[in-house]
């Protein structure tokens, strides 16, 4: 059973033990529109919290996905290179970007839970 966290950059982080799975939220994919290109990091890439970790491009714009925590990438979702629209169709599930190890669990304290993120999104409109 994983615990879900959110960032103000509209990323979700599912933490299961020492592993964090990272993706972008439904709000993010809606704002971006049709996703046409995704570049995910390769396993072994060391990321500090806030580093640029992945790239997402829609018909409208290019954006970066940042590392929400410090750690090492264990797996990138290479399926997204072939089918970037999965980010639109299934942002919270099949559209995950990468998994990484969690160096410092206390970094999660800075993130939002689902209710706080929902309130954050509501405050944007």
């Amino acid at each position: 059973m994983s615990t879900l966290y959110f960032t103000e950059d509209h990323e979700w982080v599912a933490v299961d033990g020492n592993t964090a799975t990272v993706g972008v939220t439904d709000y993010a994919q809606k704002q971006l529109g049709d996703v046409v290109f995704v570049e995910v990091p390769e396993a072994g890439k060391v990321l500090a919290k806030g580093d640029e970790a992945a790239v997402i491009e829609s018909v409208k714009a290019a954006s970066e996905v940042y590392a929400p925590v410090t750690g090492t990438v264990t797996e990138g979702n290479t399926d997204l290179a072939e089918t970037p629209a999965t980010v639109n169709d299934s942002p919270m599930d099949d559209g995950w970007f990468f998994r990484m190890s969690l160096d410092d669990a206390s970094e999660l304290d800075d993130l939002m839970d689902e209710a706080a993120y929902a309130a954050f999104v509501a405050s944007l409109d």
Binding site: D9, H10, E11, V24, A28, Q31, L32, I56, K60, A61, A62, S63, E64, V65, Y66
Partner: peptide, 9 residues
């Protein structure tokens, strides 16, 4: 993720 939407604008 940085939502820097340039849009057509």
């Amino acid at each position: 993720m940085a939502l820097t939407l340039e849009e057509a604008a």
